[in-house]
Each structure stands twice: as structure tokens, then as C-alpha cells.
Design a protein around this nucleic acid. Structure first.
Length: 860
RNA sequence: GCCGGCUUGGCGGAAUUGGUAGACGCGCUCGACUCAAAAUCGAGUUCGAAAGAGUGUGGGUUCGAGUCCCACAGCCGGUACCA
């Protein structure tokens, strides 16, 4: 520990202000209907991605986004908005469960201990959250409504005509059978191939499987009965309604690619009495189809395979079944497949084409069968080359230098395609689709890559499904809403047992709901709670509804486009959380339970903070920076402000502890503008700050420039340049002090105002000290005061420096009156000795005068 | 492979969107204060002695390019046979 005295006493006043804000509930936000609520103010909902309260505590990445939103929140409050700025905990999760298994402690114990640490750390940074709205996804009062929303999904289907969710009870009234209804629910049960780890006792997402395998866990593919959410029903809306959002284009693109919309056609091939339907995005190339491929799992494979090929086909199917998704999709391996012995008829020309099976055709996409056009599809080309299948050209590339083999582009002309010859590819695509429909050979079809969402997990520490199974009819039923929340039973042993029903099967008395009903033992994934937390903040203690409709309307509705006004977080949630939450929100919207079809109107992604070595921070690299250490050493204001000064919020940037020192020095300079140490070493107000107005001094001008710059930069979230400007302003004040001019109180207080959102502790402390001396200052915290405005008159310069270039090179600078006419500026430029030197012996061809900026003289 | 993003001094980064490249900060150098140091304050700091050169590379448009266009390279992220 250093002996160094703190450059300003943040260690004394930062905790002081934090407890004032806590005790006074300075940042409490009222709802419509609350006493004292001011309905005349516009609303602003500023949201952070809530953290998973891990045992490691806060990371320096957290305060980056949290400081940015805190600055905007404080700024908006000072500009007369009702600001909703809440914080909570995404507190279900595997680490707590695994720690619990190791220690034998209940996961709620570690979870709530970690939450306490996170809350302490966030309060230590002076964020202006309304802590009365804190939520935790593990809280029974929260779980209740997560389960309630799940039941909404369970009791809904997607009405294709209305393009919205509707209650399945409508279908019952229409006389649908139980089975038919179960097939359309938004939450449904399906058998499917999943990654199952017997030793961990849970299913894994595809993305997780390889990672756990490399850590020595066993991951196998198993057909299991799982709960799914029918997010695919919303694919079209999830793409279309993304468009108008104020999100980074790159994130929109990521979501669009993930949903993966493609337009093409389904075409029916015949094989004996069977019809095999294929999906293609290139119906135009139908005349070039020389073989067909079914996925190994395709249901017709067994029926069409000839006796001679049966053994080979079955061997291949077994081989594929043993492979993981990752092995199957390894692009570097050679294509494999076997011939079924069967042939299909191409409907457009009656050609007989061989039918193969190969694992490069996926079961889950399209129809699980393709027509292969090796001339114009790289995968088919590779396969056909390997197995010596015929290749027929049907597209001639427009660029004569491009070979037609393996040409997959759209800029070409049809050949060998009967009456389609001569058409461009896009024309042929449209005409072929229309023709297929006319002839009854097929139809246009839109497909999505998006799959339904595997929603069940075999874990203890998650929301149990509010579902019971009837042992007589084998059906699932919702439990009554009055029984929510349904919590996990208290259990001694929630270790995975290898049973794919999950650890809850061991709670035998809990499972037994009644004589004929047993409980579903799966739990929901961590995403469930984070899908709607932003709605619970609006009304966190309501036990009658997940949110009061009037309250929801105020915070989420109203001004176009509504929703959360600003949502800041990392890119890692670009497709998962942000897609899932949009999906749930749309279901709620379909029922009129929320006001907008989209939850997050504006999204900003903060960039990752790297370690001092420009590498990703990690324990193993030893480059992790702990916010606690920085706050102890330099104070919360320094940490907040440094993270904003590092660079643009959106950019990836490396940490530099020396940079924190620089900010700390700056804040100390602000402090010492007003404060001085007396003989006893105590900080007291100096006489630098003077109440008398000194008029329009250079400092006054600089302060107003700073107000303008900081205001504009907060609006555009360019916090780093706002801080630079405040530094320049402070530098100007020090320059004024050199001349013993003193600093005008009004100017200094304006600086404190604009600095307040960045460094709230320091500025409140200085203001309260000044307020004791200068009674003219309102006795009210800065954060409750009004944001200052700049006087444009102070910004007007009456002279301008004009740059003079000869042939584009800087040669001289002259100062002219701001309103000097062009001719005068030009004449002054030409008269410059430096210019004459550089134009000597040359002819002046042209003179360009940009008023207020520069003169460029072209001479040769 | 495909799709995005980035590339500016010794370092983090500015640059009014086509008009003084390097604001602000870090680091470094020198000076003041001090017995000395730290802290603080002040001066300087793209390279080059200078002419001049200079924003990943090569070309182009323009009176003028970090900024616009074309080609390429490197790094980072996403995605993975989606027919």
C-alpha cells in the first residue's frame, strides 16, 4: 500500500454521498398513481443488461455500460424527464448449482451472498438506480410471473391468418382434438435429438457441447422428450419488426442471419408411388438437377432403398447417427454418402435421377431433401465430382471469363432449360416458380434457419415447469395459476444422477401431485427470467399482475415508438437474449398485455475492455483488473470517468491504470480550483472562487463552449470527447488563475453541473461546500437541479484564423474578421510573404476561398 | 469459406463528415518549488538537422482525401454444408 496521500479526499466524501442517496432515496422513481408523481414530465426508460451475480464479483466490464447509462440517466433527470433506471439480478444459473453440489449448501445461499456483493459494489460506484425496484429472477415473487408467462405460451397457438398468438381454447371450441392442439401450442413437448451429458445430467446447447467435451465430460446425442418454444412461428415478425429499431446495423444483421430467411420453392419429385418434396432457393436451375439427396434420417429412405443397397444405406445411417452435430458439419472433411438404388423423376423434363443419402443434407431444414444441381452449387459440385455423377450446365455466367462449372452467382443467363433459355437468373427464378405452381409440380416457399427453442433443462436451480402429467391419458396439463409460484422442493441431494428427467425426480413426494398426476421435473433455462425482467422493474412488487397496465402504458407506451428508450449491454447477447426477449414480448403484445410490439427501441453495445496487455481479461492470463482495487486507490469517480475516457463506448479498448491516474489528477485539479489545504492539512475553501460576476471573460466563453460540447456529446454518447472538453475548460481556469483573475462562481458552478453526471460524488461535495459559503446558491443537490444552457453569444468569435495553402500545402495562417468578405480574405492571402515565396515564378491558376476556413492557391 | 468491424505518434485516442492531421490524456524531456524526493506548477514532445515526409499497402477522383471510389493485406468478432 502506498504512503501517498490521496490527491483529494474521495475516501471521505464518496461513502458519505452514497449513504445520503441511499437514505434519502434520492433516485426513487415514482409510478403513475403514486403520490407526488408528475405526469407532465416526459418519461425515459434507461436500462442496463442485468448481471449474473457470479462469485467473482463485479468485473471492470460491468461499470463501463453502467456508467454510460448512469450519465445519460442523470442528464435526462436534469433535463426534466421522469427517468426509470433500475438494476437487478439474473440469478438462476449453473455456477451456483455446481458450487452448491460441491459444498452441500443450497444454491440460494451462494446466490444471495453474491447478490449482496454485487449490490455493495454497484452502490460503491454511485449509480443512480432506484433500488426499490431491484428484482432477482430467483425471487419467488418473480418466479411466479415467469411461470405465469410460460403458461400463457403453453395455452397459445400462432394464428397464421391474424399473424398473432391466440388462446388454444378457441381451437377447443372449434372441436380440435387434444393431439391437434398439442401440435400447435407455443410451448410444446417434442422428441428430438439433443446433446445429452450423462455425467453432468443435463442437455446442452449445441454451442456448449464441444467445450464441455474438451473438459473431459461425456456428450452424446440422444433422442429425448423436451419442452420447446415455437419461436419459429414468429420468424417473419422477428425479421420485419427488427427493421425500424434504433439498433446497431451489425446486431440487426446478426439477428437477420440467425433467423436466416430464404425465398425459393418446394418441388415434388416422384419415385414410384412416393412423392419426395425438395426445397430449393434456385428453382431456376431445375433443369440442371442430375441427382437427389435425402438426409440420412429422411422418413422415405427405408421405403425407397432397393434390396441390393439396403445394407450399405443402413450402415451409413448408423455411422451418421453416432456422430455429433459438430462432426457432421465439419466442413473440412470430404463429403460422404451412399446410393439408395432408387430413381426419381424430375417433373420438368421427366429425367430419371438417382437418389442418394448424404449427411450434407440436414434433417431439420427445408424438407430434409434436395435436388442436386452440381453445375451451380458448390456442395453438389463437390459431391458429384467425388462420386462421378453427371453435371449439366443450365446457367451461363454473364462475365465471359468465369467458367460455368461451380458458378453459383445470379448474374447469368439460362441455357439447356427448354423455354426458360435466355432468361436472366432472377427472371427464371420467378417464372419457374410460377410455372411450377401452374403445373402443380410445386410452389413458392419461404424458409428460415431459425429452429424452435429448446426450453427445458435438467437442473435443480431453475424455474420448475408449472405442468403436471396425467398417468392415465399420458397428457400434460397446466397447474392452476393459484398454485404459482411453483418452487423447487427443498432437497438434500440435487446432484445429477444421470437420469434425463433431471435431479427433481428424486423429490418423490414433490413429484406426486395427486393420485393420477405427477409433476414435470425439468426446469427452465436461465434465459426465461431474463426474457421479461425489464417489464418487472416497472412494477416489481405487484402480486396481482406481472405489471400494472397503467404503469406499463406510461413507461413502455406513449411516445412513438415507445419501449425501453436506451438499452446498453455487450454484444454477447446479440442473438440469444435479445431474440428470446423480443419473442416473449411479441406474445405479450398479441394479448394486449404490453403496449409495443418491440421491447427495446434503442440498443447500444459497449465494447469489451481488454487487459493492460491488450488481451481478453482472464484469470489464467493474470490481467484481470478488480474494480474494488481501483476504487480504493483512486475513488469511484475516477473509475467511472476513466472508463468513459478510454475511448468510444462501442469500441474494444485496453485498460491502462496510468490512465486512471490521469483522470484522478484531473478531478484533483477540479477540487483544488476551489479547495486548499490549511496549516493543519485540512481542505478548506480557497478564495479562488469569487461571487462577483466578471463578465464575458475567456473562462466564461470556455465554460459555455464546454456546456455545448458536453450536452451534444451526451446525446450522441461520445463521453470521451466530452471529458476532453471539460479538461480543456479546467485548463483554461488554471490559466486564468495564473493571472490572479480568480474564477467566477457562476462559471465554476456551471462546470460542476456538466461534470456532475460523470463524477457525481466530487461535484456534489464541492457544491455543498460552496453552498455553505455562498447563500445565493440553491440549497439543493446538483443532481436535482436543471441542466445548464449555453449562451450562443459567448460562442461567437469575431475574428477567424484562416489557413492559407499553396497547392494544398499549408503555407501560412492569417487572422481576419469573422465576417470579412471573400475578396478581402483572398487579397490578404495573396499578400502573405510566405505565399509569395511559394508562388514566385509560377502562374496563379485558381484561388479557392472557403469562408471562415481556408484559402487554397493553385499555382504552377 | 461466408458476413461484419477495425487499422492514425512511444501508448489510449481526437479530427466540425471532403478543408490546419495528432485535440485531450498517458509516457518522456527540461525548468520552478525542495536539503532531497514525491506531489504540484510551468514549457516542450509525429518523424526529420533541414528541404520535406506522414493516417495498414497500391492505385484513383478532387484545388484539397484519415474521411469518397477500386484492388489488396493484417488483426478482431460472428457463423458454419441452411440447398
Amino acid at each position: 500500500m502506498s504512503e501517498r496521500k490521496n490527491p483529494y479526499p474521495f475516501d471521505a466524501f464518496e461513502p458519505k454521498w452514497q449513504s445520503i442517496w441511499d437514505n434519502e432515496k434520492t433516485f426513487k422513481t415514482l409510478n403513475p398513481g403514486d403520490a407526488g408523481f408528475d405526469a407532465s414530465k416526459p418519461k425515459c426508460y434507461i436500462l442496463d443488461m442485468f448481471p449474473y451475480p457470479s462469485g467473482a464479483g463485479l468485473h471492470v466490464g460491468h461499470p463501463e455500460g453502467y456508467t454510460a447509462t448512469d450519465i445519460v440517466s442523470r442528464y435526462k433527470r436534469m433535463n426534466g424527464f421522469n427517468v426509470l433506471h433500475p438494476m437487478g439480478w439474473d440469478s438462476f444459473g449453473l455456477p451456483a448449482e455446481q458450487y452448491a453440489i460441491k459444498t452441500g449448501q443450497h444454491p440460494s445461499i451462494t446466490t444471495y451472498a453474491n447478490i449482496d456483493t454485487f449490490r455493495r459494489q454497484l452502490k460503491m460506484l454511485g449509480f443512480s438506480y432506484d433500488w426499490d425496484r431491484e428484482v432477482a429472477t430467483t425471487d419467488p415473487r418473480y418466479v411466479r410471473w415467469t411461470q405465469w408467462i410460460f403458461l400463457r405460451l403453453y395455452n397459445s397457438y400462432y394464428n397464421e391468418e391474424l399473424k398473432k398468438a391466440c388462446p388454444v381454447s378457441e381451437l377447443e371450441e372449434k372441436g380440435w382434438t387434444r393431439e391437434q392442439i398439442d401440435n400447435v401450442r407455443l410451448a410444446y413437448v417434442a422428441e428430438g435429438m439433443v446433446n445429452w451429458s450423462p455425467d453432468m445430467g443435463t442437455v446442452l446447447a449445441n454451442e456448449e457441447a464441444e467445450e464441455w467435451k474438451s473438459k473431459g465430460h461425456i456428450v452424446e446425442r440422444r433422442k429425448l422428450r423436451q419442452w420447446m418454444l415455437r419461436i419459429t412461428a414468429y420468424a417473419e415478425r422477428l425479421i420485419d419488426e427488427l427493421e425500424p429499431l434504433d439498433w446497431p446495423e451489425s446486431i440487426k444483421l446478426l439477428q437477420r442471419n440467425w433467423i436466416g430467411k430464404s425465398t425459393g420453392a418446394e418441388v415434388n419429385f416422384t419415385c414410384g408411388e412416393h412423392t419426395i418434396t425438395v426445397y430449393t432457393t434456385r428453382p431456376d436451375t431445375l433443369f440442371g438437377a442430375t441427382y437427389m439427396v435425402l438426409s440420412p434420417e429422411h422418413e422415405l429412405v427405408a421405403q425407397i432403398t432397393t434390396p441390393e443397397q439396403k445394407a450399405a444405406v443402413e450402415a451409413y445411417q448408423a455411422e451418421c447417427a453416432a456422430k455429433s452435430d459438430l462432426e457432421r458439419t465439419d466442413l473440412s472433411k470430404e463429403k460422404t454418402g451412399v446410393f439408395t438404388g432408387a430413381y426419381a423423376t424430375n417433373p420438368v423434363n421427366g429425367n430419371q435421377v438417382p437418389i442418394w443419402i448424404a449427411d450434407y443434407v440436414l434433417t431439420g431444414y427445408g424438407t430434409g431433401a434436395i435436388m442436386a444441381v452440381p453445375a451451380h452449387d458448390s456442395r453438389d459440385f463437390e459431391f458429384a465430382t467425388r462420386f462421378n455423377l453427371p453435371i449439366i450446365q443450365v446457367v451461363q455466367p454473364d462475365d465471359a471469363d468465369t467458367p460455368w462449372q461451380d458458378f453459383c452467382g445470379y448474374d447469368g443467363t439460362m441455357v439447356n432449360s427448354a423455354h426458360f433459355n435466355g432468361l436472366s437468373v432472377p427472371e427464371a427464378k420467378a417464372k419457374m416458380t410460377a410455372w411450377l405452381e401452374e403445373m402443380g409440380y410445386g410452389c413458392g416457399k419461404v424458409n428460415y434457419k431459425l429452429r424452435d427453442w429448446l426450453f427445458s433443462r435438467q437442473r435443480y436451480w431453475g424455474e420448475p415447469f408449472p405442468i403436471v402429467w396425467n398417468s392415465e391419458d399420458g397428457n400434460h396439463y397446466a397447474i392452476p395459476e393459484s398454485e404459482l409460484p411453483l418452487l423447487q422442493p427443498e432437497m438434500e441431494d440435487f446432484k445429477p444422477s444421470g437420469d434425463p428427467r433431471g435431479p427433481l425426480v428424486k423429490a418423490t413426494s414433490w413429484i406426486q401431485y395427486s393420485d393420477t398426476f405427477t409433476r414435470e421435473t425439468n426446469t427452465m433455462p436461465q434465459w426465461a427470467g431474463s426474457c421479461w425482467y425489464y417489464l418487472r422493474y416497472l412494477d416489481p412488487t405487484n402480486d396481482n399482475a406481472f405489471v400494472d397496465p397503467e404503469v406499463e402504458k406510461y413507461w413502455m407506451g406513449g411516445n412513438n415508438p415507445g419501449g425501453v428508450d436506451l438499452y446498453v449491454g455487450g454484444t454477447e447477447h446479440a442473438v440469444l437474449h435479445l431474440l428470446y426477449a423480443r419473442f416473449w414480448h411479441k406474445v405479450l403484445y398479441d394479448y394486449g398485455l404490453v403496449s409495443t410490439n418491440e421491447p427495446f427501441n434503442k440498443l447500444v453495445n459497449q465494447g469489451l475492455i481488454l487487459g493492460e496487455d491488450s488481451q481478453k481479461m482472464s484469470k489464467s492470463r493474470g490481467n484481470v483488473v478488480n474494480p474494488d482495487d481501483i476504487v480504493r486507490e483512486y475513488g469511484a469517480d475516477s473509475l467511472r470517468m476513466y472508463e468513459m475516457f478510454m475511448g468510444p463506448l462501442k469500441e474494444v479498448k485496453p485498460w491502462q491504470t496510468k490512465g486512471v491516474e490521469g483522470i484522478s489528477r484531473f478531478l484533483a485539479r477540479v477540487w483544488r480550483l476551489a479547495m486548499v489545504e490549511n496549516q493543519e492539512g485540512e481542505w478548506v475553501l480557497s478564495d479562488n472562487i469569487r461571487e462577483a460576476d466578471s463578465g464575458v471573460t475567456p473562462v466564461r466563453k470556455e465554460v459555455h463552449k464546454t456546456i455545448k460540447k458536453v450536452t451534444e456529446d451526451i446525446e450522441s454518447m461520445s463521453f470521451n470527447t466530452a471529458i476532453s472538453k471539460m479538461m480543456e475548460c479546467v485548463n483554461a481556469m488554471y490559466t486564468a488563475l495564473k493571472d490572479n483573475a480568480g474564477i467566477c462562481l457562476a462559471d465554476y458552478v456551471s462546470l460542476l453541473h456538466v461534470l456532475n453526471p460523470y463524477a457525481p460524488h466530487l461535484t456534489e461535495e464541492l457544491y455543498s461546500i460552496l453552498q455553505q459559503r455562498f447563500a445565493s446558491l440553491p440549497a439543493c443537490q446538483l443532481c436535482r437541479q436543471t441542466w445548464p444552457t449555453w449562451n450562443p453569444e459567448y460562442l461567437v468569435e469575431n475574428t477567424k484564423e484562416i489557413v492559407i495553402q499553396v497547392n494544398g500545402k499549408l503555407r501560412d495562417k492569417i487572422t481576419v474578421a469573422a465576417d470579412a468578405p471573400k475578396e478581402e480574405v483572398e487579397a490578404a492571402a495573396l499578400a502573405s510573404p510566405r505565399v509569395q515565396e511559394h508562388t514566385a515564378g509560377k502562374t496563379i491558376r485558381k484561388v479557392i476561398v472557403v469562408p471562415g476556413r481556408l484559402v487554397n492557391i493553385v499555382a504552377n
